[in-house]
Structures are given as C-alpha cells and as structure tokens.
Design a protein around this nucleic acid. Sequence first.
DNA 1: CACCGATATGTTTCTCGTGACATAACGGTA
DNA 2: TACCGTTATGTCACGAGAAACATATCGGTG
Lengths: 118, 118
Amino acid sequence: MPSKTQSRLRIVLEPDIAIGPGKADILEGVRDTGSIAAAGRRMGMSYKRAWLLVETMNACFKEPLVAASRGGKSHGGAVLTPVGEEVLRRYRRMEALSAKAIAAELRGLKRLLSDMSN
Amino acid sequence: MPSKTQSRLRIVLEPDIAIGPGKADILEGVRDTGSIAAAGRRMGMSYKRAWLLVETMNACFKEPLVAASRGGKSHGGAVLTPVGEEVLRRYRRMEALSAKAIAAELRGLKRLLSDMSN
DNA sequence: CACCGATATGTTTCTCGTGACATAACGGTA
DNA sequence: TACCGTTATGTCACGAGAAACATATCGGTG
C-alpha cells in the first residue's frame, strides 16, 4: 500500500475556534444527506456531537452555515445555506492549494521517515 | 488589533503520528536553547511533556532529530542533528508555502466571519 | 564527595472532553 | 391522536491524556 503521509489544514479563526477536516466533513455531509443526524452517522459520530459542531460554526460566522428545520413531510432536516456552501468550497480549495504547494517538500520529508513508517 | 485568523499545517505521517506547530516549536527551541528543558520552559510546557514529544519524533524518523547528552561541563543538553535541522527547515518551509498559497482564499473566508471574530 | 543542572523515567492525581442516555418539541401523515 | 424521524437540549459517568510529583542517573566542578 502507498504511504498514508498527508497534510491537514486547520484554519484558526479565534483561539479555540477553528475549522478543520472534521467540520468541513460535517458541512459536506449535511449537503449530501440533507440532515445533521445522517451526516453524523456517516462519520460514525453521535448526533449530539455533530449538532454541537454545527452550532459552533453557525455562531462564528455572520450568517448560519446550516439551516435546520423540524417536523414536516420530511420529518425535519438541514441544508447548507449559500454561506455554508461558500465556506465549504473555500475550505476544500484551500486544502487542495496547500497540498499542491507543499507536495515537493512533503516528498523530501517522507524520505527521512523510518522504514516502519512507509 | 489585526485579526488572529491564521492557518495551521499538520503533517500526518501515520495515524496518530504527526508533526505540527507544537513539535516544530520544540525543535526550534532545542536549536535555540541547547536543551530540552529550556525549550519546554520557553513554551510553558513541562520538561516531561517536551521530552515525550522529542522521544516520539526521534522514534518515527530513520535517525534521531535531537541528540541529548547528560552530565559534563554543560550539565547535559540537547542539540538538533542534521536530520533534525532538515525536518525543521522543511516543516517551516511547508508552513510558509501553504500560507502563501491560501492567502487569497483566507481573506475571502475572513469576510464571512461574524463581527466578534475580527 | 557533595553539588549542579540537565536527561531519563515511573507513579499518582486530576481534569476535561466525550459518549451514553434521556427527554421534549416540531409538523407533517395514516 | 398516535406515530414518525428529525432537531434541540440537559445530565451524568467514564476514561484518556495531562499535570504534578518523585527519583535515579550522568559527568563534570569546587
């Protein structure tokens, strides 16, 4: 198997408030599944935890990233707002740009790893 | 004051084994101070924790990043090995490259933050 | 040989985050 | 009105990880 070496990008908005791979995956999950609960399940995460992450994200942007509704025909659900779509798109783009920018250096670093690590 | 928004880069070598800002700062501290204890103090970190991080890093590369010695005229100390210097240099460079690559997107993201966050 | 400051390592204590569980509300449908 | 699946929220117990504390060792110097 190829090496698992990868980079992870975390954007720190405030001390203790950041957006990283986890929150981005939640946004993506909400977009794909239409519900916070299903997004959480897909990641093996409790609904409560997923909801907590959504609440945090909604709080630190000007407008909510996720709009949730209860009851109704669909038994409730959640969708990304335009801002939510934009944040997700920007984050994924930053991930890609970062990975591309450091690819060469990363290969150099990988050469120094112990044999067990690749 | 200007916004604290920033990016952080974490390189994941193995699941649960990574190098991020903390370990890089330790390497830098050892290089600057000549001891693990002083590097830890400078970061407000216990010697034990600093030493643990060094041990982990030394274990997952082909050669140690930090060479420590006990006793002697200088009462012991630690220095970066050539490999340690290289890892630090590469990591700092990756940080810089990543930050530069995402700068524009980051500004875009920042505009979406709530007023409290800038 | 006592002392120094650093490395090296074990043990114990505590804290915080997490998981697990419980409950209520919502607004549709059968 | 009973039921559905979801959102929304509270409480509590537990465990992993960190802090705190305790030694032992090293190899020089006074």
